[in-house]
Amino acid sequence: MRTNDAVSGAIAAALGAALIVASADLSPLPRQVYGAGTFPTVTGVLLLLVGGLLVVKGLRDRQPWIRWTAKVPLRAFLKALGAVVASVTAYILLTPVLGFPVVALVILSLLFQVYYRRGWVLSVSIAGISTAAIWGLFAQMLYVPLEPGLLEWVLYP
């Protein structure tokens, strides 16, 4: 999704203005005019300046406000975006309750089913092997504390 440079420039300028306002509360070092607010203020001013230049450029070049320029169709992108956002959100919300093995198995099975399209048996089988491999690498070899959840009694009897 490509927007007019004026749009991205305006967002950048707004971020710059927000930085300047937020930095005003930061106090300088004792007996100095510089401190924790100096850099954010400079960054904010530069964002305002560069964002402003982009706005001028976008308006001058009369680019369309918004258009789809990616090589893939918008529908396919939205499906992928939905799949990624839903997978990550589901992982974050469900893993503390159900545990990594169950959540990863379900997410991977669904994704394989959507993108590999070779039937549920194969999708679940590959997902099972993949989940076990990731668990082995991260939880067993690298000691990352992945949540065992419902399968705690199986994994750590």
Binding site: S87, V88, L111, Y115, I126, S130, I134, V144, L146
Partner: peptide
């Protein structure tokens, strides 16, 4: 179709770690 979902799961666990 198998590789990309696997990379996604690897990313999630990697970021968590």
């Amino acid at each position: 179709g198998v590789l990309y979902p696997l990379i996604l799961m690897f990313c999630i666990v990697g970021a968590f770690s």
